[in-house]
Write a protein that binds this DNA or RNA. Structure first.
Lengths: 248, 248
DNA sequence: GCATTAACTTGATTTATATCAAGTAGTTAA
DNA sequence: TTAACTACTTGATATAAATCAAGTTAATGC
């Protein structure tokens, strides 16, 4: 049943993302059982799709490495970016009802994904109680992240949106055990602009300002945060609020 | 086990909302089993809370009659309105993970609610397969509705937002078997403005314009749609798209 | 039923961000 | 390596909606 594990084909129990992914709180033997149903194909190259709108839903996806952009188009043909999924994040929850994807998911960089065939996964949740709770966590997270996005769009001006986006990415990398003040971000400024409901010009101007004021530098996919306090202040993040660790 | 049923205390099998609520697709006997765990208290009066942010989560709520506003505040004390829940809609999914509500839910009018104690509900889903699917539907709906909200905030101007809001409410009433061109809406214009990311002044001006152009009249909680085609056109709703029947 | 408060309306003005434009830098492919 | 394209930058201008202001109407409580 098990395949040979290569570099991109790491089992759950050897995966560094256990603490942010489904294995959280599972017993060792249950992690193995989960591992047995996980399907790990070769990584997606930049620009390849994990799924596209109208594709049939048959599995949940957990990101192992890379970034996935979830997007769609309005009737008028304008792109909408709904979020960026990082290692440990789960994709596909929105299709649980209709069993059909409504959005498209594309890799923004080389991206490894763990595929969890939904039927097998559902069977497992019946005998691994904690796995069910993990699923509920993933569901809530998806809903709450959407609300955070709306909140950002309703109540934040352009400076605050960009600052919050950068800070949020930083927090998410920190939670995953990576450096939070210097990281690679394979997301086009254009995509960020669409996600934040701004134009690329506005994002560019704001990033230029942040750079000039020595708060954040984001050039050539490398983000450097020089002044976390000021960034958080602009973002409107009071206290080191844990519930803000949302998926962008 | 069963209580005496009064006017506001109707069993699932006698409820007109079966087609939009959990009983959808359930066998008769399973509806009865669901009914047995439902807790129906006396209706909430306008202004009363179903739950408040930080309350412990212990049950899902299905609206039977009335309207619930789900809201919170930013760190700066500004209100955020996340949605309005109508009969048949399910509240509480966002708290499944943390078992604690993050938002407050208040009745905007006299509102009856069916309480589904979550533990009992979970037990039932194990023996009623279709109920589990209903739960997945409710989850997806919550996620997709949030995305629709973001899309509205990102890509629509003020006219389109107001038009889409009115049309969406109309569609939701239609799906529930009520008149779609004339209905009572116990939602303050102020709350609509907050939900749409606009000011009350802007909403007022747009409604005045829609009234002058004989498209929609919304006065004193009574909505009348005079020209559905034009409303849909302004809202940017092409075709009678079924997937647009989202919760505002 | 009257007083008080909250909701809504309408107008004048300001402003943040979009749009338009014209460029430079970076990436991709031949 | 160069050509062609895409991403990004920067400036000038336009504009949609916010803000400020002062009213009217409706709802609420005594």
């Amino acid at each position: 049943m098990k395949e040979v594990k290569s570099a991109f084909n790491v089992s759950c129990k050897n995966c560094g993302l256990q603490k942010v992914c489904f294995p959280t709180g599972l017993r060792r033997e249950d992690v193995d059982r989960l591992d047995d149903i996980v399907d790990r194909r070769s990584p997606l190259k930049k620009g390849q799709h994990l799924f596209e709108a109208s594709d049939k839903f048959s599995a949940l996806f957990a990101i192992r490495a890379g970034v996935i952009k979830l997007y769609s188009f309005t009737d008028g043909g304008e792109e909408i970016v709904h979020g960026f999924y990082l290692p440990g994040d789960v994709l596909g929850i929105d299709a649980l009802g209709s069993k059909q994807h409504q959005y498209s998911a594309v890799a923004l960089d080389t991206t490894s994904v763990c595929t969890l065939p939904f039927e097998k996964f559902t069977e497992l949740t019946e005998s691994i109680p904690n796995l069910n709770q993990q699923m509920l966590n993933a569901i809530s997270k998806e809903v709450l992240d959407g609300r955070m996005h709306s909140e950002l769009l309703i109540r934040r001006n352009a400076d605050q949106r960009v600052a919050q986006f950068v800070w949020n990415m930083s927090e998410r990398y920190r939670n995953r055990g990576y450096a939070s003040d210097e990281f690679r971000l394979s997301i086009l400024h254009r995509d960020v602009a669409v996600y934040l409901g701004l134009t690329p010009e506005t994002v560019s101007r704001i990033l230029a300002k942040f750079h000039a004021e020595n708060i954040v530098t984001w050039k050539k996919k490398e983000v450097m945060i020089h002044d976390m306090q000021r960034l958080m202040h602009i973002a409107g993040v009071h206290s080191s609020c844990d519930s803000c660790k949302a998926t962008a």
